[in-house]
Design a protein around this nucleic acid. Structure first.
Lengths: 137, 137
DNA sequence: TCTGGTGTGTATATATAACATATACAGTTG
DNA sequence: CAACTGTATATGTTATATATACACACCAGA
């Protein structure tokens, strides 16, 4: 009865050369796909073996990534059945991304201060760089 | 003849619990001290043993931190003599901090986009959070 | 002057922990 | 029972941190 449609998840590129652990890159990729709305609630994720094969990574690495995503309530796993996007997965992914973005901003302000700028100058620096940043794609 | 004044470098807190490797925390601490102008050019840094004792860290960890700082041209080492702040150490530290801050801002914008925001919305988000951030200390 | 002590940085071999892996096991469904 | 799914255990690899022994620079005292 369960219509198991094949999903072509675009996670990559996953690379040992890229910053962050492999499993973390996978976690981040799924948060992006789910947060941007391309994977709705209860959508089945690729199986461990399929995704491992696609990403040229071991099953354990995929497992670890899924564990992390489940810990954050973004997906859920059912033995013998598969892994699925949680009902509120999108909201949780977006909240995680927003929270991470805020943390990065705080760090950026801190770094600007440690470059010798005053508090006001540091914030002005962040705002200027933000405005100057080209809008990719 | 060489007046070796004792310098009380405030690097800490260095902790295994804090994010980043111990040597990286030390590197960051010196970049901050030098970038904010508290350590001028040719100022002698603490010896490996003294700093290792103060920070409750091994000599090798201090050595690795100093190696990284030398690689970036912020300090220089002289066997048998000691380690010193480079003449243009402040500029290099500040440049490194500014560059890092810019990278963090780019990442923050990217994260905001992946939370489901448009490019313009993501930038507005970053600017809003920046303005709302309290100016600590 | 020269020599040795005490400071500096340097080098090698060794633990520890996070990360990634291969292989075998267990639950679900038709 | 066959073919999927997720699960668990033992193992290898790498970055990080360590202890110990070595080499160079200065300077006080013979």
């Amino acid at each position: 009865m369960t219509e198991r449609r094949e999903i072509a998840v675009q996670i990559g590129p996953i690379s040992p050369a890229a910053p962050g652990a492999l499993y973390q890159q996978i976690v981040n990729g799924f948060k992006r796909e789910i947060g941007e709305g391309r994977l709705a609630g209860d959508t089945p994720l690729p199986s461990f073996r399929l995704l491992a094969e696609q990403l040229l990574v071991s099953i354990i690495t995929v497992r670890r990534a899924y564990e992390e995503l489940e810990r954050e309530g973004i997906i859920y796993r059912r033995q013998g059945l598969g892994t699925f996007v949680a009902a509120d997965g999108r909201e949780r992914s977006r909240a995680a991304k927003r929270g991470h973005a805020e943390e990065l901003i705080r760090l950026a302000i801190q770094e600007a201060k440690e470059a010798g700028l005053s508090s006001a100058e540091a914030k002005a620096f962040v705002i200027r760089i933000t405005k100057e940043t080209p809008s990719e794609e």
